[in-house]
Nucleic acid binder design. Sequence first.
RNA 1: GGCGUCUUGGCCGAGUGGCUAGGCAAAGGUCUGCAAAACCUUGUACAGCGGUUCGAAUCCGCUAGACGCCUCCA
Length: 493
Amino acid sequence: MALYQHQQLKIYNSLSGKKELFKPIHEGYVGLYVCGPTVYSNVHLGNVRTFMSFDVVFRYLKHLDYKVRYVRNITDAGHLENDADEGEDRIAKKARLEAIEPMEVVQRYTVDFHNILNTFNFLPPSIEPTATGHIIEQIEIIKSIMDKGLAYEVNGSVYFDVLKYNETKSYGILSKRKVEDLIHNTRQLDGQSDKKNPQDFALWKKAEPQHIMRWPSPWSDGFPGWHLECTAMSTKYLGEHFDIHGGGMDLKFPHHECEIAQAEACNDQPPVNYWMHANMLIMNGKKMAKSTGNFILPNEIFTGDNPHISKAFHPSVARFFMLQAHYRSILDFTNEGLLAAEKGFARLMEGINSLNSLNTSKTSSFDVNDWRQKCYEAMNDDFNTPILIANLFEGVKVINQIKDGSATISKDDLQIFKETFENFTFDILGLTNVSETASGADQLSGVVEILINLRKEARLNKDFALSDKIRDDLANIGVHLKDGKDGTTFTTN
RNA sequence: GGCGUCUUGGCCGAGUGGCUAGGCAAAGGUCUGCAAAACCUUGUACAGCGGUUCGAAUCCGCUAGACGCCUCCA
């Protein structure tokens, strides 16, 4: 029997504003779409947090034995510089500034994006389609929306008619906005526009002569509007109606709202059952922004080369730090937070590493199955990773108690204990065991064992000057000895 | 200006109408040759002011503040 049949997963649905029991459209299969990055600069750390949240969603669904198709696009074309008529493609603009080909920019930052995500131990999505690879599909969707009378062409550009759409459907169901309010609150932009109404959004934009990225279409040589690609790619790979659509909170409006409108206009049904939105990452209490200097590149976390942090941090520490907060909460990225997470993470790893050397007893003094179910319940409750981590620490406490002799575990229970730790820590949270993966670990431990034995002899001879020198000199190079009941172990940092 | 989310102990960060989150830091104890580690113990926390309730930090209202969206944005 598949695991999902035993676990009741609840997901907070932005559409209803409630936690709902998750039921996939086709039993055993899940279609998951997440809006990917625009590859015109280095991936933003906040972006990383969003994708990390969905990486964990992906991992947990897989762990529950669902067959998951996870689609995360690469936006390599089509996002307008602004909504006014000079509508210039961001990627084209960047290319002109750097005097290189647009696809060169795309390539460079796509590679950067993948490198960063790999470093953070992300699972690759099942499909990672590009916007430029789906121009034909996007044109087909525009045609279909025009056939329904919900889009109009002006001067080679095509716009979605929000007011017309709103006559029979409701625009704003996701972001809880009313079209009337939108009309009242729209700012009047200068030089506006071919649009009938300011709320209308572009499905196709005619390219200006200097615009490099362009494709032929029935209306003009141009490029697709910035909401369309996700509709095209999600429909193509997951169908007209699929299970989960995710993205950052800031995409809720207008991007996801427009996606819903386009898809409904085109296919006459709501495209998505569960909408999930990950909350923002701020830094030192403020929005991260390059312009104010309140900013850090993901890579700088690993190198420590940024004024906002005091040292370099391992990717898993940063990952652990982020997963200690729930994905729907705003998270404040601070040096102090990272420092605290680093210590906590080390404690967790030390606990897990000592699982292998635990002595077993006839009986167990704690209920390992109950503990395991608590771990599942945390994840079942809208992917509550902070609660899961709290449970893992409860497990670490038990490990240490067993080491101390104040708790016991049976052989069978130890097996479950180990397996559960492995599952949740590495498979689901996607953390990596830092000390285990250190290169030359075997050789190092051999050398340290020798020193531990020398120190033991010195201590037996009451030569504490020597024993302390061994301990302190090792500590100076980052090897910390720990005297326990059953001898001395060590950790490295 | 409009819409929305949020405000928890020294710090980070969960959660709930009445019962211990967890991590980091701090204090005492056990252990140790001394430490470190580990274990045990220790925190009158829920922005302010009203209201609902037998009971609210948890529900409602107001005030203040933060953050987000309304314009490319994860």
